[in-house]
Design a binder for these strands. Structure first.
Lengths: 227, 227
DNA sequence: ATATACATCTCGAGA
DNA sequence: TCTCGAGGTGTATAT
């Protein structure tokens, strides 16, 4: 990874056009060809680079010290140009391979926990299968409720209006099967946005907020922090 | 901005839990309190940091050279811990204020151009207003066509199936008004995905691909690169 | 290569 | 502060 601190102008043209005037910035060139431009201070975005290009790229560094850097995609449909006025720092560090990042608590984990405890999605629910296939993609959980009715469950960490649309599309397809024409929909999430609740209600879709700690048995369902 | 290259372990707990084993990484501490952890090489994500915390944060750097860094949000609901085995580089650079980034060609620009030339969305269209309000959000353009019919126009840079869903929701609401029960829908975009075209056709929504250069008068509508 | 959905999405505007 | 929608979204997975 090469790190350059330089006073420079930046021009990007591709999916849109941007220009940034002369200022001191950090230029980061990763070994895989990813290129990023960072500014400091509160003016710009916090965590996002001001400009960037994802690998694979072709990077041409002109001059030593660098006076100009051109980055472009193979097809040439995107171009990032750095005009350098002064290089304040330029060093390359070998960091070896990227070490694996283990994650716990993403939507996948929520789905596993709810598959093991489908009754958290609704009274008496029994799991038929996870990732129930439809012709436009898999439904997270397919369950049966008391009385043998079918229920499709869509799981989200945070459920927005888009989650309701997604489940609606699935239900539309599922109900084409006469045996499942009465299939209900349930939206299960750690957090459900107000507009999602409203749209879900209008579509006859039930909403269930679930708690990760409860699902893991770390906390009783009826206890609260204020109990 | 402080840049540290160090062999370290990283643990995050907050919206989820992550752990990364000992490896050499770049730690970036921005003046505003934003903290980022980058790996090099193709293993991890290209442009995203492996871990991060957006400002405002409290950052505690223990030891000199640093042996441990703790970053947390004010409420304490998120925590990022860096256990450092060896510091390979540690330097702070003053980069002044972040210089403004000017963007051109985003959806906003497209909307302005189409508002000034509504006939690009359809023969004889006249603009009634931009950001026409509905109870679930504003429609980009509301127009009238020859014969006084109403047309709601949704504008996207790239129109996907979601854009069709969004316009459908708006039309559903707009048509509740008896005076607008016949309101048509038009989806205008620089690029329309094939599946979006198909769904739009099924919903009776017209699609128009628009060209930024043509809208700006930089190129004639009937000329092409292959003409 | 394209489509589909997730993301600690981030970020900015508006209420 | 919260909510909502756009993003050069990026990223992974399945087709």
């Amino acid at each position: 990874m090469r790190l350059i601190v330089a006073r420079c102008e930046v021009d990007y043209s591709g999916r849109l056009i941007t220009h940034s005037p002369m200022a001191v910035r950090l230029l980061m060139i990763k070994t895989d060809g990813t290129f990023m431009v960072f500014s400091d201070g509160g003016g710009g975005p916090n965590v996002k680079p001001q400009n960037w290009m994802t690998a694979p790229t072709t990077i041409a560094v002109e001059g030593d010290p660098p006076s100009r850097i051109e980055v472009h995609k193979r097809g040439g449909e995107e171009r990032l140009e750095i005009a350098i006025d002064e290089v304040l720092f330029d060093e390359t560090h070998d960091m070896g391979e990227a070490a694996a990042l283990e994650k716990d608590g993403v939507e996948r984990d929520l789905q596993e926990l709810l598959a093991a405890a489908p009754h958290r999605c609704g009274e008496g629910f029994r799991l038929v299968r996870r990732e129930w296939p439809t012709d436009i993609g898999p439904v997270d959980l397919m369950c049966r409720e008391p009385g043998e009715g079918w229920v499709a469950v869509e799981i989200k960490r945070v459920a927005t209006i888009e989650a309701v649309e997604q489940l609606s599309r699935y239900l539309e397809r599922i109900r084409l099967d006469p045996a499942m024409s009465e299939c209900r929909g349930v939206l299960a999430a750690q957090q459900i946005k107000p507009q999602a609740s409203v749209l879900a209600a209008a579509r006859g879709i039930a909403c269930v907020e679930v708690d990760l700690a409860v699902l893991r048995g770390e906390r009783e369902p009826d206890l609260t922090l204020f109990g």
